[in-house]
Design a protein around this nucleic acid. Structure first.
Length: 430
RNA sequence: GUGAGCGUAGCUCAGUUGGCAGAGUCCCGGAUUGUGGAUCCGGUUGUCGUGGGUUCGAGUCCCAUCGCUCACCCCA
């Protein structure tokens, strides 16, 4: 119970009990991504601080107060990545991946933000990020959304709600912002404290207020969608139509605003009500200006990120359970000679049966203790080696998960017997 | 950064107006000397988050502090 050593605040251990569910989820995601032709890219966790200042936006909460930033030994200012898009764009520019090319990329890994931890929000958290570069049209926006929908289906998640909005181009948004700010200033006496602060810092967020007393002000505010010009409007309509064609239901949420400055036009979120206050499981959108903003050639782009802790929490909440693959065989070795012979036999069996999961008893102990361990390990069979078996050149094979007697099996035919009983293939060749 | 709730065994938790630190579970052993699960019997495990105060006496009351959780905020 000593408090001397414990994990840093907001950083969690994922324990062996939980890793099967994570691995299953990651496997499903990999399969879906492969099905759409996306390739994995592996990126550093550490980047130059300037990268995030220039991409996420200098006046965002993330950059202003949530980054893990420190001086390297040579004086460079480095930052643990708070999100993945910036690093992905940096890598693409650096390696010429965007030069007249279409790139469909994904990555996975830890992100770091110094926020107050709560349910679904940690200081180290994990994302799967997916980015598509070089495609201007609404078709790729739709592809990304269909990809996420397929992943939810693959994971057995049914009740996520898709919310959709268009932020327009930066120019359209600027014009809207001016009108919105004027509207809000006229009603500043009806704004709460947060609303007044946001009026200065991020006026679009005023519309996101949860305060019911501001509901009428919010409801009467001009809508960003009315400020889209023909191109943006056509883009958004095309996205909506294609989603309808695909049979995906969605809600247009005019108040949906991203926290990162680089988004433009299509933005979307997958939301659940089952995870408390942090209900956004996946969010993304189009960010056509970012590559150029970071020094690359103008390159249209769109992408999204999935919060894996939240996804796992949702899977757990819906009762998804995944155990580790229990051992096929637990080798019970009684006495020093049997322990030595058992180690050799275990290696021979692993050679002969590549898919075999065999746990060798370690730490000695009597038969009672060893069988107890075999049972607790979840093994299907106990393989028993003692003086009698050694003398006969056999091993005892006892089923632990079904009724049946212990068989005395000659070690020479043990691989074939195990292969048949367990349904695992024998090694070929050699 | 703001607010609320909670810190007792590895885990889940009781603990009375202040009076010997508890249960279940887990683990170990035995009943059954080379055979697991079910049952029965026995056993190990504590800086009661930490520091101070009040008191003859504090897990319990007071103050401070640290941690965790949830919510605000923000966001995946």
């Amino acid at each position: 119970m000593s408090k001397n050593l414990q994990a840093v605040r907001g950083m969690r251990d994922i324990l062996p009990e939980q890793t099967p569910l994570w691995q299953w989820m990651e496997d499903r995601a990999r399969a879906v991504l492969a099905g759409y032709g996306y390739s994995e890219i592996r990126l550093p966790v550490l980047e130059m601080t300037e990268l995030f200042e220039r991409s996420i936006g200098e006046v965002t909460d993330i950059v202003e107060k949530e980054m893990y930033t420190f001086a390297d030994r040579n004086g460079d200012s480095l930052t643990l990545r708070p999100e993945g898009t910036a690093g992905c764009v940096r890598a693409g520019i650096e390696h010429g991946l965007f030069y007249n090319q279409v790139q469909r990329l994904w990555y996975q890994g830890p992100m770091f933000r110094h926020e107050r931890p709560q349910k679904g929000r940690y200081r180290q958290f994990h994302q799967i990020g997916v980015e598509a570069f070089g495609l201007v049209g609404p078709d790729v926006d739709v592809e990304l959304i269909l990809l996420t929908a397929r992943l939810w289906r693959s994971l057995g998640l049914a009740d996520l709600e898709l919310q959709l909005n268009s932020l327009g181009t930066p120019a359209e948004r600027t014009r809207y912002r001016e009108v919105l700010v004027a509207y809000l200033r006229e009603r500043v006496d009806r704004l709460d404290e947060d609303g007044r602060r946001r009026l200065e810092t991020n006026p679009l967020r005023v519309l996101d207020s949860k305060n019911p007393e501001m509901a009428d002000v919010v409801a009467g505010a001009p809508s960003l969608l009315d400020f889209l010009e023909a191109d943006s409007r056509a883009h958004f309509t095309a996205v909506c139509d294609a989603l309808a064609d695909a049979g995906l239901s969605y809600t247009v949420n005019p108040r949906l605003v991203r926290g990162l400055d680089y988004y433009a036009r299509t933005v979307f979120e997958w939301v659940t009500t089952r995870l408390g206050a942090q209900g956004t499981v996946c969010a993304g959108g189009r960010y056509d200006g970012l590559v150029e903003q970071l020094g690359g050639r103008p390159t249209p782009a769109a992408g999204f990120a999935i919060g894996l802790e939240r996804l796992v929490a949702l899977l757990e909440e819906q009762g998804a359970a995944h155990g580790h693959g229990a051992p096929h065989v637990y080798l019970v070795a009684l006495g020093a000679p049997a322990e030595r012979a058992g180690l050799r036999l275990a290696e021979q069996l692993r050679d002969a049966l590549p898919g075999l999961r065999l746990v060798m008893n370690c730490g000695g102990g009597g038969p009672k203790a060893q069988f107890k361990r075999a049972d607790r390990a979840g093994a299907r069979y106990a393989l028993v080696l003692g003086d009698g078996e050694l003398a006969r050149g056999t091993a005892g094979l006892k089923p632990l998960r079904e009724t049946g007697e212990q068989d005395d099996v000659a070690t020479a035919v043990l691989p074939a017997v195990l292969a048949a009983r367990l349904g695992v293939p024998q090694a070929t060749g050699i």
